[in-house]
Amino acid sequence: MPQPVEFWFDFASTYSYLTAVRIEEAAAAKNVSVSWRPILLGPIFALHGWNTSPFRVYPIKGEYMWRDVERRAEKLGRPFYKPGANDARDFPQHTVLAARMALIALDGDAGREFCKSVFIAEFEEGRDISDPQTLVDIAVKAGVPGDILGAATSPENKQRLRADVERAKALKIFGAPSFTVGEELFWGDDRLDDALDWAAR
């Protein structure tokens, strides 16, 4: 039997967006199951002395990233909206609440649709995913039941997200998207197929 793949992502990550819109189809083609793992890259970047995205720390790298993501989105037949196009301070977006809500959503059948829809809202529709109402609207449309906002902001769920970030650190994850198959780590959207092949072998 193929091993499962854990897909670690931050909703602010451009390359995680590229993975999110295609990972389920790619995994199904290889009969591999995927667990979606929302995390926050901020605490991970802080380990390296960064207080923001490395794409802002190193502007030339950021300039390349934007063009690369545009090309890759076009190849996938997806539209692409650049967060921060009107104000550079809008990138990376604040994703704590989105990650907390994703944990609740992923407890049910609508979780993956919720996560994918958050990425689409941010990187295709240009919406503000730090806005609670935007996230609630996405959750309702995705079919997430109950008071997701209340559940997401509970002390227990906040601790749950912190624990997942600590687990990511223990797995030596340093960016997103990352994929783990057991203790084997793959980093980057362009390593998705490698991770799936490793799981399926």
Rank of each mutant, 00 (worst) to 15 (best):
Q133K: 11
R127P: 00
I148V: 14
S130P: 07
A139D: 07
E156Y: 14
S130G: 13
L135A: 05
I138P: 05
I148Y: 00
E125R: 15
E156A: 15
D131E: 11
I129T: 13
E125Q: 11
S130W: 12
I129D: 09
P155S: 08
G146Y: 00
A152T: 10
R127I: 03
E125V: 11
D147G: 04
S130V: 08
A152V: 09
Q133P: 06
D131A: 12
E125S: 11
D147N: 14
I138R: 03
D147L: 04
I148W: 05
V140W: 11
S154K: 07
I129Q: 02
S154M: 10
A152I: 11
T153L: 15
L135C: 03
G143N: 09
G150I: 10
L135S: 01
L149Y: 06
L149I: 07
E124Q: 14
G150V: 12
G143W: 04
E156C: 12
V144C: 09
Q133D: 14
V144I: 08
V144M: 08
E124K: 01
N157K: 10
R127E: 10
D131F: 06
E156Q: 15
V140Y: 13
I138D: 02
V144R: 04
N157E: 10
G146Q: 07
P155A: 07
S130F: 09
G146N: 05
V144F: 01
E125H: 13
V136Q: 06
I138T: 00
Q133A: 11
G146D: 03
G150F: 06
E124T: 12
D128I: 08
Q133Y: 06
K141E: 15
S130R: 04
D137P: 04
P155Y: 09
Q133G: 07
V136S: 02
P155R: 08
T134I: 00
Q133M: 13
A139Q: 03
D147F: 08
N157S: 06
D131Q: 08
E125C: 13
A139H: 01
A151M: 14
E124N: 04
I138M: 09
I148K: 07
R127V: 00
A152R: 01
A142T: 06
A152M: 03
K158P: 01
V140I: 15
T153C: 15
G146T: 06
D131N: 12
S154W: 07
A152Y: 04
V136D: 07
S130I: 08
T134F: 01
V136C: 09
D128V: 05
V140N: 15
E156R: 14
D131K: 09
R127Y: 01
K158F: 13
T153D: 14
N157R: 13
K158Q: 15
R127S: 12
